Amino acid sequence: MLPAPRPAQPLGEQRVVFADDTLVVVSKPAGLLSVPGRGPDKADCAWSRVQASYPDALVVHRLDMGTSGLLVFGRGAAAQRALSMAFEQRLTDKRYEAIVGGAVPDMAGEINLPLIADWPRRPRQMVDMVIGKPSLTRWERLALETGLPGTTRLALFPVTGRSHQLRVHLQAIGHPIVGDELYAPPDIETLAPRLLLHASHLTLPHPATGQAMAFHALTPF
């Protein structure tokens, strides 16, 4: 029997973490698109909310709709290019927090599994050892006591930035993220009303000065 659909959850407020003449960093709530989707019902997104106050803000990277946390926009094309290059050249450091199914026995490790789009089941991604793109995630165990039975809290450090990378990598090692409608089995998916994945820390070079900037968004679960 399929589990009953989860009730819709109200979206939290999007908070501006930092803003200056070239950079805007926000904390996106879970359930909000990063950029507009298809159709007028999907027009509300992190980008449109930022542009209401900063009309020159342009997209640098994205978070999945279910993921909350730090999201960066460049103000103007030059800032967008500089920030995009910083992400592409791995000049940024990203940390996520997640609650995953099962008791993770080790204190730390890494997941080095190539990923590719699962085209017949889009938007899903999958591990493909032959033609997948190199993908690397490092992780640390934070706690075995999370408030949810049979789960573990992890810190995640993606070295590469593939679509759904953290979600697929954790599923692949047998510890899918709680609340994941695409990759978790029903008993893990339904433990929470949202995907328990949050972009909590980000460091990057300022697009104008090159100065190292560090941002933090408190994990809401």
Rank of each mutant, 00 (worst) to 15 (best):
M1H: 11
P3S: 09
P7Y: 08
Q9G: 00
P10V: 12
P10C: 11
L11M: 12
L11F: 04
E13S: 14
R15F: 01
R15Y: 01
V16G: 02
F18P: 07
F18A: 07
A19Y: 04
D20W: 12
D20I: 10
T22Q: 13
T22H: 15
V24L: 09
V25Q: 05
V25R: 03
V25D: 06
V26Q: 00
S27T: 10
S27A: 15
A30W: 04
G31L: 12
G37H: 11
R38E: 14
R38Q: 13
G39Q: 07
D41N: 06
K42R: 15
A43T: 00
A43N: 05
A43H: 11
D44L: 13
C45G: 02
W47T: 02
V50Q: 02
V50P: 04
Q51A: 07
A52G: 13
Y54F: 15
Y54W: 15
Y54L: 05
L58C: 08
H61N: 13
D64L: 06
D64A: 06
M65I: 08
G66Y: 06
S68P: 00
L70I: 07
F73L: 03
R75A: 01
G76V: 02
A77G: 03
A82R: 14
L83V: 07
M85D: 12
A86Y: 11
A86K: 11
A86H: 10
A86C: 11
F87L: 10
T92N: 12
D93K: 14
K94M: 06
K94S: 07
K94P: 07
R95H: 12
Y96C: 08
I99C: 06
G102K: 00
V104K: 00
M107R: 13
A108R: 15
G109K: 05
E110W: 07
L115D: 00
D118E: 13
R121N: 15
P123N: 12
P123V: 11
Q125R: 14
Q125M: 15
V130F: 04
P134N: 09
S135T: 10
R141E: 11
L142R: 14
L142Q: 14
A143G: 08
T146Y: 09
L156M: 13
L156H: 06
F157R: 10
P158S: 01
P158R: 02
G161L: 03
S163D: 00
Q165I: 01
L166E: 02
L166C: 05
R167T: 00
R167E: 04
R167N: 02
H169P: 08
L170I: 04
H175W: 03
P176E: 05
V178P: 05
G179I: 01
P185H: 01
T190S: 12
P193Q: 07
S200V: 14
L204Q: 08
P205E: 09
P207T: 08
T209R: 12
G210K: 10
G210P: 08
M213H: 06
F215L: 15
H216D: 14
H216V: 09
L218F: 03
F221D: 04
